[in-house]
Amino acid sequence: MAVEVSGKKVLKDIDLYIDEGETHVLLGPNGSGKSTLFMTILGFPKYKVTNGEILFKGENITDLNTTERVKKGVGVSFQNPPAIRGVRLMDLLKVESGQKPDDEELSPEMLELAYKMKLDENFLDRDVNLGFSGGEVKRSEILQLLAQKPDFIMFDEPDSGVDIENVELLAEEINILLDKDKKPGLRKNSGLLITHLGYILNFVNADTAHVLMDGRIACSGNPSEIIEDIRKEGFKGCVQCCGIH
C-alpha cells in the first residue's frame, strides 16, 4: 500500500498482515510514518491510499469511512487526542458502551473499569481530554477501548508521557484488550502497537515486530531480538543487519 498526506507521499510500499489473535509492534524513528499508517488504517480522510488496499476480516474496507470501520470492530488509542469542551468523558463512555445517552448514570461495570484505571467519578465528569495530564489521556483512551470492546486495536505511543508506574497499569489493560490472558490459540483480538522507545514491551508480549523507515517496512521479526538490535545499533544499524531475522 502507498499513502499520500496533503500531496506528500509518506508511505511508499507497506505490506503488513496481522492474523487473528496476534499482536504486532511497529517501531521506527520519529517521522518515519507510524502515525500515518495508524490514521490510514483508521480511515481519516486526509490519508489517501494511492495504491493497494486495506482488508479487515477478509473484507476490503479501503473505501469505508472511519465510523463504518469502527463499527466493524476497529478500535484506537490516540497519542494526542483533541480536547472537546462540554463533552464529558462520561458522555463518551455511555455511547461507547452502548448505554442510552440520556441515562443519568454510567453502568456499574463501566464505573468499575474506570476505578481500575484510577479515574474516579469526578474525573469522568470532566470535559474529555481538557487539561488531562499525559497519563490521564492514555488511561482515558484505554478506558474508552474497554467500553468499546473492539476486535482489532491500534495503540499510538500508549506509553509516551506516562510515568513508569502507570505504564504497568496501562499494559495490564492492553493485555486484557488483546486477549493476552488467554492461551495463544484461543486469542481472538489482534493489535498493532506503535512505540518508538518500546518501554511498554517490557509488559506487553508481541508476536512480531516491524521497523518502519522512510515509509517502508524495513525489517520484521522477533520483537525482543529487534529491540535488542535497535538498542545496540540504533534504527539504521538494526535495519542494515535485518537480513539475520
Binding site: 490516540f78 483533541p82 472537546i84 470535559d127
Partner: peptide
C-alpha cells in the same frame, strides 16, 4: 474533534451534534 468522535463509532452528524451540544 469530529474525527476523534467518529473514531469512537459516532457518525459525522452524531459527532457534530455532540460537539455543538457540548459547546
Amino acid at each position: 474533534e469530529v474525527l476523534y468522535l467518529t473514531s469512537r463509532g459516532l457518525t459525522e452528524e452524531e459527532a457534530a451534534s455532540m460537539i455543538v451540544r457540548g459547546f
